[in-house]
Amino acid sequence: MNPLIKIRRDLHQIPELGFQEFKTQAYLLDYIQSLPQDRILIKKWKTGLIVKINGLKPAKTIGYRTDIDGLPIEEDTELPFSSAHEARMHACGHDFHMTIALGVLTHFVRNPINDDLLFIFQPAEEGPGGAEPMLKSEEMQEWMPDFIFALHIAPEYPVGTIALKEGLLFANTSELFIDLKGKGGHAARPHETNDMVIAACTLVTQLQTIISRNVDPLDSAVITVGKISGGTVQNIIAEKARLEGTIRTLSPESMKKVRHRIDALVKGIETGFECEAVIDYGSMYHQVYNTETVTREFINCVDQDPEINVIECTEAMTGEDFGYMLKEIPGLMFWLGVDSTFGLHHAKLNPNEAAIDVAIKVMTRYITFKGNHSI
């Protein structure tokens, strides 16, 4: 078996949630320490790793980032290497991302280039968000790269396809949690209560007017309430209710506007239903914005390989906290085709492992080019 396939399958079996990636960190560290150590420096950051490979004649530092956490999903693939952790799964391809990063790292340990390389194994991408605090950490500040790159698997594209665009690639995202508290009571005496199920339903309907009546029709934004909980039994009027959802926008300005309107509507619910409300926006991720000049250079370099199909895609409403790194450091993210019938965050996601070698080929080619040319 290809050693990288084994690594991917090993990692697939031990998915862990954000800032709980202890087994994952140990596995990554064990592998990296098995390589020749003469040019490798390693730092731990929480449950992540930062690995520097010293170049031959460094003029700059090139960064490559991978996320390492899993999702709270019960796997349903029936693969022989399915998740060994109950209700945990690498359903967003982070096992692929880590394996590719290790493959690229291994290549440059054995095939040095002029510039320094920095491999960032970042925890908690799925939540609560590891990129921003990692970027601000002393460890990263000491080894801040001049450029940074990352990829994300794309089930909808065939193996051999690289999809990206200059500028905006992923949306601004924010979690949304709203807790309502009123006065419960007997179902036969509704006039003595403040029904939070009715309040919650009313609020969900009102939230849907924000996009249609407050966001420019030529812009794009999404508010989705994915979960409502409230009440205890059928004959008691609910004292409490909770809404859980997500916000997606294509600009930071629209995110501010949407959140401002949510605040206003929730205040209206408090007045209209004589209740208390608490809003928590949870984790908020900055948009992924690919640096135009770097993206053009990347496309020109990779497009020379006839086996790689580079296509221009449209921006997506998906979120990625890598956006915080691109906000501070020039670079890019691209979609890697993995040809899976089931999509991201699905319990049956099963990416084609042939894409691992494709990604390593693409990144080693480009980093070699960039790492042997001065800024």
Rank of each mutant, 00 (worst) to 15 (best):
C92S: 05
L56P: 00
P36Q: 03
P36A: 01
K57N: 15
P72T: 13
L49H: 04
G93K: 12
T99Y: 11
A87Y: 06
D76F: 14
A59F: 02
F19R: 03
I68N: 03
Q20A: 13
D67R: 11
L17R: 14
D95P: 12
S83D: 11
E86A: 08
T99C: 07
L35W: 01
P80K: 12
A26W: 00
G103M: 08
T47D: 12
V109W: 06
Q37S: 08
Y64S: 01
L79T: 07
T61Q: 06
D30P: 02
I32R: 00
Y27D: 00
T61M: 06
P36M: 02
D67I: 05
I40A: 04
L71P: 14
G55A: 04
L35A: 01
L28A: 07
D76V: 12
L41G: 01
L49F: 07
G18M: 06
D67S: 12
I40M: 01
S82N: 08
T106Q: 15
L102T: 02
L71V: 13
Y27Q: 05
D76P: 02
C92A: 11
D30E: 14
K60P: 02
M98P: 07
K44T: 14
I50P: 02
K52I: 08
Q20C: 13
P36S: 08
E86I: 11
H94R: 12
L17F: 08
K44V: 05
R88L: 11
Q25F: 05
F96E: 03
D30W: 00
Q20V: 01
I42C: 01
I100D: 01
P80A: 14
E75V: 13
S82V: 01
G18F: 07
G48I: 13
G93S: 12
R65P: 04
S34C: 05
P80W: 15
K46G: 00
L28N: 11
E78L: 08
K44A: 08
E75H: 15
D38K: 15
W45S: 02
A26M: 06
I40P: 09
A101E: 05
A87K: 11
G103E: 09
V104D: 12
D95R: 08
W45C: 03
T47Y: 09
L29P: 01
L35H: 02
G103R: 12
E74C: 06
E74V: 10
T66P: 00
L105I: 03
D69E: 13
H107G: 06
T66N: 04
V104N: 10
R39A: 14
E16L: 09
A26E: 12
E21G: 10
R65A: 08
D69L: 10
Q33G: 01
S34L: 04
E78H: 15
I53P: 04
